[in-house]
Amino acid sequence: MSKHMITLNVNGEDHDIVVASNKTLLEVLREQLNMPDTKYGCGTGECGACSVLLEDNSAINSCLTLAATMDGKKITTASGLEKGDKLHPVQQAFIDHAAVQCGFCTPGMVVKSVSLLAKNPRPTEQEIREGLEGSICRCTGYVKIVNAVEAASKAMAGTAG
């Protein structure tokens, strides 16, 4: 198995690491960098539990991304969304709206929502629902997640304006 030396920036910290060419970004985050906040739910790009944020605010499924292709990239995971001791407005909204049950989908769901709001700061309810397709939650029925994203959108508009 060939190996690659890459520099990967996760949540603001550079990691110089050697990765096997068949390793996914998810495996490298969880196993090599000991960052288990990104979750394995299916490994086939169907559940969104493994979503991480790229610099351009797009969210990708880390289970489908080979780590070797990430040289020089900056990514943000759920735990990296907190600034200082202040949660990201999306995370705060998930708390305020009780949009979390078992929490296993949550890191990916939060990342996906941050990405969605970066691209579309004032989404309609339907746009939120469509934007979250591909992220499965089996606990909440999505009601409170959609409410939280709506509230985060408002809160972020407030801070921006």
Partner: peptide
């Protein structure tokens, strides 16, 4: 809930 929105809650796989 805070640990869950941050992803720091420890599940068996972690």
């Amino acid at each position: 809930i805070k640990a869950k929105v941050l992803g720091t809650a420890v599940y068996a796989a972690d």
